[in-house]
Design a protein around this nucleic acid. Structure first.
Length: 290
DNA sequence: CTCCATTCGTGAAAGCATCA
DNA sequence: TGATGCTTTCACGAATGGAG
């Protein structure tokens, strides 16, 4: 029995799919099959009931699942304990997206480490779906993501219901009237697709018209806002910090199609160790959004 | 160092169910 | 009924480890 077999078992149990598990673990599907088969052979029991279309845990599988999760957790704690040999009291791995690191959480994390030198941190930058996978896999302790998740080993908390604002570079001359959606193309609109509810909303707002320039990173958007004197949408949480820093200004925007909300969630792995540090850190992270 | 057995992962193909 | 999706099986190659 090895860790890879246990991971395969836990993922198949959670996803109810060998194929999905293979995608998550970055192996071909038959590898998942053989790992499960090996595990079943070693345990002398079937872990899954397969019919031709669906799979579900057998009674033995259900009994074994919490033990498998505990073994994996112990393995991760062991790895973490080795990392802590260099004298830190705790080590936490935190993940969120580029935009939130750069424009919302950077100062808070910086301050946290200065006030808590006994806690070593590893910061991970990924999209929400990958962060959630890593959380489930026990590779991340704390994450801030845009999608909710329901998992036995993860505590989820809604931080804020964010929204979007139209912004421009701080040198932009704000018009004395509301910018309307039909006006966007006359204002050098630069598009950054924020995903989720924003995608559908913007499609409606723009009447499915392609944008002249699309970017995939906030820093790039800011550069173009400056050089092209253009407009672009930012989440409130990101815009707030940039307004404080005098980088951007809000441009009054009016639309008959309500600007969508976007929930931001804090995910925290249920841990037996590092609970105190994790609590301190998550409070700091939450405060950054106030 | 070489040989050989074992283990592991891969792609292709087969078999089956579901759905339009 | 064909397209699609899912799991299993099989042959193959690469990596690994033990024996001599």
């Amino acid at each position: 029995m090895d860790i890879e077999q246990l991971k395969a078992f836990i993922f198949v149990a959670n996803t109810k799919s060998f194929t999905r598990t293979a995608e998550i673990l970055n192996v071909v599907q038959s590898t998942v099959t053989s790992r499960i088969q090996m595990l079943e052979k070693q345990l002398g029991k079937d872990l899954f009931e397969r019919d031709k279309r669906n799979i579900k845990l057998t009674e033995s599988g259900s009994v074994f699942l919490p033990y498998a999760e505990r073994i994996l957790e112990l393995n991760n704690e062991g790895l973490k304990a080795i990392q802590l040999e260099n004298g830190f009291r705790d080590h936490l791995i935190i993940g969120t997206t580029h935009a939130l690191w750069d424009y919302v959480l950077f100062e808070s994390i910086d301050n946290f480490q200065q006030t808590h030198p006994e806690v070593s941190l590893t910061l991970v930058t990924e999209h929400s779906d990958i962060l959630i996978r890593k959380m489930i896999d026990g590779l991340i302790d704390v994450a801030i993501v845009f999608y909710p998740i329901n998992h036995a080993n993860i505590i989820m908390e809604l931080i804020i219901e964010d929204s979007f604002v139209l912004v421009a570079d701080s040198n932009f001359t704000i018009p004395d009237h509301f910018v309307l959606r039909k006006d966007l193309k006359n204002y050098n609109y630069i598009h950054l697709n924020w995903g989720g509810t924003f995608t559908g909303w913007f499609r409606e707002v723009s009447s499915n018209q392609d944008c002249h320039l699309q970017v995939d990173h906030v820093s790039l958007l800011l550069k173009f806002l400056k050089t092209r004197n253009g407009l672009g949408f930012l989440p409130n949480a990101v815009a707030k910090r940039l307004i404080q820093q005098d980088e951007v200004v809000i441009v009054p925007f009016h639309t008959d199609i309500a600007v969508p909300k976007r929930s931001i969630y804090l995910l925290k792995r249920k841990m037996t160790k590092s609970m105190e540090s994790s609590e301190l850190l998550t409070n700091v992270l939450k405060e950054a959004f106030l």
